[in-house]
């Protein structure tokens, strides 16, 4: 396991996973590479994720941003289907039930199962729908990935069935930007839009507020972030964007403090 991944898993202790590195810095002046493109030649560098060594050359194996750090070359995806990892917090909906748990659609091609043992409270085994029903939305964590599928858990603080609010979906590759360095972007968004936001690493994001207009404002800001090609100076751009939108939508934000359900 590389260093970055370890960091990620530690950070998953909290609901909104924080990025230690600043995505704005990573993407700054980064080169975009495509499959088959030669990135480096010689033995000074090591091929990391998304690359391979071929003789003397390190070749890209996917379309994405080039990341060269400590002689390790990686390609950070800009697009693509969500690749589940243990420890990821994801949002999904119940699409089927078995005798001992629920199947959750987390926008991944692999089956995801939430066992009745993993919801962290009493479950009436005779009627699982009392706990979670079809189409219910949950925020859960990936406990394990096995060949037959993904095991989810809700046995941690903050993992729960979601009520109210709205869901939006962005490409999972854009999730780090929405979270920002040490969660800075998502904190700012919450503050500035008066909403609660839970970012699933599968790209599904829940936005909740008392007033649906605040949710809409947050939705727009997140889509703004996701649609930017590069994120050079993004925090400032987003602040400006929010100011303009607030004027347009004629809404003022009553900041809502950290809620008990969230912390």
């Amino acid at each position: 396991m590389d260093k970055k991944e370890k960091k990620n898993i530690e950070k998953d202790e909290e609901i909104n996973v924080e990025e230690k590195t600043n995505p704005e810095e990573i993407e700054q002046d980064r080169k975009i590479v495509v499959p088959g493109e030669v990135i480096e030649s010689g033995s000074d560098f090591l091929p990391g994720e998304g690359t391979r060594r071929e003789g003397k050359e390190i070749v890209s194996m996917r379309f994405g941003l080039l990341d060269m750090n400590d002689k390790l070359i990686k390609v950070i995806p800009l697009s693509g289907a969500y690749v589940p990892r243990p420890g990821n917090v994801v949002i999904g909906h119940v699409y089927d039930m078995t005798f001992n748990g629920w199947l959750i659609d987390i926008a991944s091609p692999f089956n995801s199962f939430l066992s009745a043992m993993e919801v962290g409270r009493f479950v009436n085994k005779n009627d699982l729908s009392e706990t979670l029903n079809f189409r219910d939305i949950v925020v859960a964590k990936i406990k394990d990935i096995k060949s037959r599928g993904i095991d989810l858990t809700m046995r941690e603080r903050g993992l729960k069935r979601l009520e109210g609010g709205m869901l939006i979906r962005i490409n999972s590759a854009k999730v780090p930007r929405v979270i920002g360095k040490a969660g800075s972007m998502v904190s700012m968004l919450k503050q500035e839009t008066g909403t609660n936001i839970i970012v699933g690493q599968n790209g599904i994001i829940w936005i909740g507020a008392e007033d649906v207009e605040n949710e809409l404002l947050a939705k727009k800001a997140i889509e703004f972030i996701a649609n930017k090609p590069f994120i050079h100076g993004l925090t400032e751009l987003v602040k400006k964007f929010l100011e303009d939108e607030k004027k347009k939508m004629k809404i003022t934000i009553k900041p809502i403090g950290p809620t008990t359900e969230e912390n």
């Binding site: 499959p35 194996m61 693509g80």
Partner: peptide, 8 residues
């Protein structure tokens, strides 16, 4: 490639 599929 645009879909982020790993390709040699």
């Amino acid at each position: 490639a645009n879909a982020g599929i790993p390709m040699d």
